[in-house]
C-alpha cells in the first residue's frame, strides 16, 4: 500500500553506485536520481546510449564523466536504432550478456525518436529503452513536447496560449507493439522502480520503461518538492505505476491507499499556475477518464 509521506526501508536497495558524485544536474533533478536508481536495478554489465537531452549534460563535459558503465552519446532521434546496432555487435562478438540500454528524454522518445523507437520495438530487438519523462524539452529551456500535459505553460506555449493538446499516450503506443515488457515507474517509489529494472534485465526482447521525472526548473517549483510531486502524480492517477507483459497482461504495481484529487499536484507547480478552478476540474475529468480505461485493463487482464 502506498501513501504520500510513507517511509521506505532502504536496506535492500543495492549499495553499488554505477555513477559517481559530481554530476551537473539542476538541484532536485528527477532524471538524475532516476539514472542512479535504474543502474542499481540493472547492475553490470550494462551499456548506455543517450541522445541529446538533459543527460547529455548531466554526466559532465568532456573529458569528465561520472559514469562507471560505457556511455555513448548518440544523435537525437537515433537512440533506438543505435542500441539495436550496439546489441547486434555484442551478439556477433559473443557478448550477449551485456544489457544494452537506450536512455532518452520525452522529446527524444515521444517526438523526434518515435520512428526509430517503433522500428526497434516492431523488430523486438533485445534492448531496454528508457524514457525519462519531464514533460517538455527541458535541456533546451522548457519547450513544449508531445509529452507536455494539456494546459501547461512552456516557453513555446506561453500563459496566454498554453498547450491546447493532450499528452501523447506513449505507453499505449508501445503496448500496441506487443513488446515483452513495458513498465511505468518513478524514483519517488524506488523499490518499485528498482524491481522493474531488475525484471527488465531478466527479460529477452524489447523492453520499455517510462519514468516520470520531476523537473523543478521547468515545472517552476522549489527543488525540495520533486519527490512529493512525483508521488502526487502517482497517488492522483496522473502517472499510474504498472507493468504490461506482451502487450496484454497488465498489473498495477503501486496501488494508492486512497486516490487523491489532482489539485495539490497542480497547485505546487508554477507551470499550471494560470489555470482556473474550472480548468483543473476539466483536467481531473481527463485523468479520471484515462485511468478508467487503464483500470479496465488492470481488471480485465488479471
Amino acid at each position: 500500500m502506498y501513501s504520500l509521506n510513507q517511509r521506505f526501508d532502504n536496506r535492500d536497495i543495492p549499495e553499488d553506485e554505477l555513477l559517481t558524485s559530481g554530476n551537473v544536474a539542476c538541484a532536485g533533478c528527477g532524471a538524475s536520481l532516476s539514472m542512479r536508481l535504474a543502474l542499481k536495478g540493472l547492475g553490470k554489465p550494462t551499456v548506455l546510449a543517450v541522445p541529446a537531452c538533459c543527460w547529455t549534460i548531466i554526466p559532465g563535459a568532456w573529458p569528465l564523466s561520472i559514469m562507471d558503465v560505457p556511455f555513448f552519446h548518440c544523435a537525437f532521434e537515433t537512440t533506438a536504432a543505435t542500441i539495436s546496432g550496439i546489441k547486434a555487435a555484442y551478439r556477433k562478438r559473443g557478448m550477449d550478456d551485456i544489457c544494452v540500454v537506450g536512455w532518452a528524454g520525452d522529446g527524444g522518445t515521444f517526438d523526434i525518436g518515435i520512428q526509430a523507437l517503433s522500428g526497434t520495438a516492431e523488430r523486438n530487438d533485445d534492448v531496454l529503452y528508457v524514457c525519462y519523462d519531464n514533460e517538455a524539452y527541458m535541456n533546451t529551456g522548457i519547450q513544449r513536447s508531445g509529452a507536455t500535459p494539456i494546459g501547461s505553460w512552456t516557453t513555446t506555449t506561453p500563459v496566454k496560449n498554453p498547450k491546447s493538446e493532450q499528452k501523447k499516450d506513449i505507453d499505449a503506443i508501445m503496448i500496441a507493439h506487443k513488446i515483452p515488457y513495458l513498465a511505468t515507474a518513478t524514483a519517488a517509489y524506488p523499490h518499485d522502480m528498482i524491481a522493474k529494472f531488475k525484471k527488465a534485465r531478466s527479460i529477452k526482447g524489447m523492453r520499455f520503461i517510462h519514468l516520470f521525472a520531476a523537473c523543478p526548473t521547468g515545472w517552476r517549483m522549489p527543488e525540495n518538492l520533486s519527490i512529493k510531486v512525483m508521488r502526487l502524480a502517482v497517488l492522483s492517477n496522473i502517472f499510474p505505476l504498472y507493468e504490461v507483459e506482451n502487450g496484454e497482461t497488465y498489473r498495477q504495481t503501486v496501488i494508492p491507499d486512497e486516490i487523491m484529487p489532482i489539485d495539490e499536484y497542480m497547485h505546487l507547480q508554477g507551470r499550471f499556475r494560470h489555470l482556473t478552478d474550472e480548468d483543473v476540474k476539466e483536467f481531473q475529468k481527463m485523468v479520471d477518464k484515462r485511468f478508467g480505461h487503464l483500470r479496465e485493463d488492470f481488471e480485465k487482464k488479471n
Partner: peptide
C-alpha cells in the same frame, strides 16, 4: 555470418551502423 537489422529508415540504418561499430563490429 552477419546480423541483419531490417531498420525502418536509412537514417536508422546509419545510426545502427554507428552503434554496431561502437560495439566493436564491422558494419
Amino acid at each position: 555470418d552477419l546480423d541483419y537489422i531490417r531498420v525502418e529508415s536509412e537514417h536508422s540504418a546509419m545510426a545502427a551502423c554507428i552503434g554496431a561499430s561502437m560495439g566493436g563490429a564491422r558494419a
